[in-house]
Design a binder for these strands. Structure first.
Lengths: 115, 115
DNA sequence: CGCCTATATGTAGAAGAATAAGGTATGAAG
DNA sequence: CTTCATACCTTATTCTTCTACATATAGGCG
């Protein structure tokens, strides 16, 4: 099944979104993808082949840690939590993102003669 | 020499910036990089190893075309112009970028219970 | 003249991440 | 008992970016 809103995430953005979602409290991978889809009003569809490698990456880098627990529906799932390292990283990456969008916005609106 | 503002561009963003800069009128590669650096107040340093492949890519995709001319300082340089295809692409990519930043912004500001 | 810097173009190799496409397993619903 | 949604995972491919290197010319300076 293809996603309706042909819309690719630029490389690097996914980690930021995941960290932010996890920052709200312990949550498992599948639910992270659902949450991102919801919050973007179906505009962003996180593929599983992007999601799980990203989670492993973030865990390896000590931004997240995880353990197996039962979901409310009685299934095994891996619940992720933000580490303090992860929290710091989230904050700095958020700042970078905001700075980047500011700069890109500047250029996209810029007139020819702009300094 | 390293650039001071360690700051990687998300994939796809460079093409957008290049197209936008070229949209202002014929310009050669080296000047594009300078322009982006200026307009970002030295925050964005486009590496040559990113710039030229990007230009070739955009030319191959018919978003740009180019020919050799003399610069004001009397040097051979490849001046790029936006094609009509490129103009259309720039517009749709700009819209995508704005939509993306909107959505990411939504998620980054979102409270835990957000729909 | 020789040297350095800025201009101007390019390539090669490696790294990194997203995608496409597959696989495993369970609970609930029909 | 079959199908669907949940929930995890991997592999191969593709694309873009970065680092680093390579080439060449114009202008300034000693």
């Amino acid at each position: 099944m293809k996603h309706d809103s042909g819309f690719d995430l630029p490389q690097g953005t996914l980690d930021l979104l995941i960290l932010k979602v996890v920052a709200h409290g312990p949550i498992h991978g599948y639910a992270i993808a659902q949450r991102i889809r919801q919050m973007s009003r179906n505009a962003l569809e996180v593929q599983q082949g992007s999601l799980y490698p990203a989670l492993h990456r973030l865990e390896y880098k000590k931004y997240l840690n995880a353990d197996w627990k039962l979901t409310e529906t009685g299934r095994e799932a891996r619940f992720y939590r933000l580490t303090s390292r992860g929290k710091a990283h989230l904050e700095s990456e958020t700042a970078s993102w905001e700075r980047l969008t500011e700069i890109v916005g500047l250029i996209l609106q810029g007139s020819p003669g702009e300094a």
